[in-house]
Amino acid sequence: MYDGGKILFGILIFLAFVTFPFYNDIGKANVKPEPKIDTPEIQKLPQKKCVEPKAFMKAEHMKLLNEWRDSAVRDGNRVYVASDGKRYIISLQNTCMRCHSNKKEFCDKCHNYAEVNPYCWDCHIAPKEAKIAPKEAKNEY
């Protein structure tokens, strides 16, 4: 081979790039996320269901949230009529997060796993969770 050193160096760089996903994941656990829905509010519900069926929410929740945002913020309409005719108040914090108060165990589970970084919390205040104990919070004042 002519210029063998240079060519082998090039091949090594190529291999380093192409096999990155393989060696990057050595020894890292690949655990499927299980979003939890066992919040006190959900436990109180007589029938555990979201505003729309689970399959729809799983695939389209981001689209629904986007529509809710446009409806509430741009059109001033805060009433959502679900596919089963039930009415809900359009509000991330007061409707969605009232039941799903466990952002870390619910939203973040799948989002972190799939590396999705939604920009909900650029504007909304993320719910305070048990991690910050009320006692500690008081002490700060």
């Binding site: 081979m1 002519y2 210029d3 060519i7 091949i11 190529f14 291999l15």
Partner: peptide, 11 residues
């Protein structure tokens, strides 16, 4: 790709 590159390298 490695085969092709080595083949070129040998030309």
């Amino acid at each position: 790709v490695i085969y092709r590159v080595i083949k070129w390298g040998r030309s």
